[in-house]
Amino acid sequence: MDAIILQILNGLDKGSAYALIALGLTLIFGTLGVVNFAHGALFMIGAFCAVTLSRLLSISHEVIDETRTDFLGNPLKVDVPYLYDIFGETTGAAIIDWAVPLSILFTIPVMILVGVVMERGLIKHFYKRPHADQILVTFGLAIVLQEVIKYYYGANPIPTPAPEAFTGSFDFGALIGFEPNTIIYPYWRLVYFAFAAVIIAAVFAFLQFTTFGMVVRAGMADRETVGLLGIDIDRRFTIMFGLAAAVAGLAGVMYTPIVSPNYHMGMDFLVLSFVVVVVGGMGSLSGAVLAGFLLGILESFASMAWVLDTIPGLNQIVIYLVAIIILLVRPRGLLGRKGVMED
């Protein structure tokens, strides 16, 4: 029992990332009808927003510390971040420590801007072209974005730690009445899951309970009629693209303490996220979320020791295997509507 709970928990963080990226992909596909191969790159840009902010926050200047000396007996030069001068040492240190969560505030506007520019500048021109062209041009864009990031940040992963308060693990099993030390779980992964749940809930609430969301949903169902009613649906869809980019970016920001950002992390996630979208059902938002978590958990179950002893390497192929079976048995995916790109 505790092993099962542990695997479910282990699957949650990856599942959350899959769900968030797949949610954005589905938003874009459902509104604009575009298959966005550059979505993984948006996830990666989000992660590098966190890197950028934590670097910005720790910009320092040199101060000579008279009380300490280096090994030659000269006064020691120490780097003091400007934040220390502004906020004092304790607050400054705390701000730097909390760089990753703080990047959320920084990432949202950046990602919305990136998304809107991308849609207006490039993807707008591809609505009328076949899906293959859309895949190709966004694939090219993904390569370009990836290489730009690689140029500025280098090819090596950049460790971006979580705040001090959330590093380390805690005994989850003891909390819910199991033997102590059976279910040890890192704090940050729980934070990530909670964060993902909040974002997903927010997106659904936004679509469900606001007028803007209602118009967007109407546009997803029948774009032409909404246009005929005198609503500028294109502008709203552009904003939705920005929103989807922001969701991907936020997924990336919060993922940085789990996996150090590198320039190809987006592509690694993208392939799996597409599989997730297809399993969930192209165009179905709840399907994308459900499939994201399901596949994340499934992957974690498949990497249990006794499973790997029976079928070696299952953890690496299980998602693809499930996708193939689903596509053949139920082409529209788990929760897909009938007739959406189904043939």
């Binding site: 293959a132 895949i135 392939v271 297809v278 192209m282 693809y320 996708a323 193939i324 596509l327 790109m341």
Partner: peptide, 17 residues
């Protein structure tokens, strides 16, 4: 048995497998 984007993703899934 599928076409369009589904075909692309199926082949991708098989290759990654």
């Amino acid at each position: 048995r599928r076409s369009g984007i589904y075909f692309s993703i199926l082949t991708l899934a098989f290759a990654m497998m």
